[in-house]
Design a protein around this nucleic acid. Structure first.
Lengths: 104, 104
DNA sequence: ACAATACTCAAGTTTTAACTTGACTGTTTT
DNA sequence: AAAACAGTCAAGTTAAAACTTGAGTATTGT
């Protein structure tokens, strides 16, 4: 399974997408990450493992708490995949658009 | 379910990702699209419906054959989502990168 | 020292999504 | 007109993910 496929598979689940969106704003512990969801901490841990394996999230355990934050590497992979998946025609349009608009 | 979520859900499946990759190169009929997979035409049709609902593929039926091609709109949605999901710091780096590299 | 916190693990259950079956519609070919 | 082709539909089955349970470990607070 390629990196891009791992990333897309990971983001295929609604809970994991929500976790990623919440981590966009701020890093947090596993418990804090789990708080909004009606599921066990174990389940959240499993989602987290998938996100980590995909390179979307990185975690570090200090003492008894594991801090979770976004890992930009995963998003870079996704970006590259998306760009490659466009038709030749569309890529030409994009290049034109970038020139007209300038970098965002 | 938002557009970005539909797109990511759709691309969460390996068969659908492969279909998208094959449609990158050329448009084709449902049968041609189905050929490499060890599954029924019905199953392929179901995958196709999901890709179409996500805005990743567009299809047109002429006579008895349905032609399938990539729909760049879905990829644009994915691109926007990806960009938004990066940390503030990373987004600054991206902007700088774009300026240095110029449009791809 | 004891209790509470913050996870972690293996194994089993449940739910979702993928896939099949069998019958059917409309279109093109012979 | 009949047969083959290209796809579609509803309903059921199967396989894959998500999720839970009931434990256990290491760390921090009282």
């Amino acid at each position: 399974m390629s990196d891009a496929h791992k990333v897309l598979q990971a983001l295929g689940d609604a809970t994991r997408r929500d976790m990623v969106e919440r981590l966009t704003d701020t890093a947090m512990s596993v418990s804090a990450l789990a708080a909004p969801y009606d599921m066990t901490l174990t389940a959240v841990g499993q989602h987290l493992a998938i996100l980590e394996a995909a390179g979307l999230v990185k975690t570090e355990k200090i003492g008894r708490v594991r801090s979770c934050s976004l890992n930009p590497a995963g998003f870079a992979v996704l970006d590259i995949w998306t760009k490659a998946r466009r038709s030749t025609w569309e890529r030409r349009l994009d290049a034109l658009g970038d020139i007209l608009d300038g970098p965002s």
